[in-house]
């Protein structure tokens, strides 16, 4: 006999079906490291001073852009 569907099971199933299409339609992105601080698109780049720049509001040491994330 089928197990009766509870309200929680129904909601959880709805969430699964709701999110899955969205996830599938996203353009594949490369697996990023957890410390990803530079987005693929640089919306806004501003020089703060000789030590720092602002990239989309992220305040980064200038050397990060030239030497990469350490």
């Amino acid at each position: 006999m089928h197990k009766p569907i509870t309200r929680r099971m129904f909601v959880n199933s709805l969430c699964l079906t709701a999110i899955t299409p969205l996830a599938l339609t996203e353009e594949p992105t490369s697996k990023t490291t957890s410390i990803t601080i530079i987005r693929p698109r640089l919306e806004k780049l501003d020089i703060i001073d000789s030590h720092f720049v602002s990239v989309d509001g992220w305040i980064l040491p200038t050397k990060t852009l030239t030497e990469g994330v350490i």
């Binding site: 703060i48 030590h51 720092f52 305040i59 040491p61």
Partner: peptide, 13 residues
């Protein structure tokens, strides 16, 4: 800036 200098991480303003 100080957060970054101290090596704690990064701030987004």
């Amino acid at each position: 800036k100080e957060f970054s200098f101290a090596g704690l991480g990064v701030v987004r303003l």
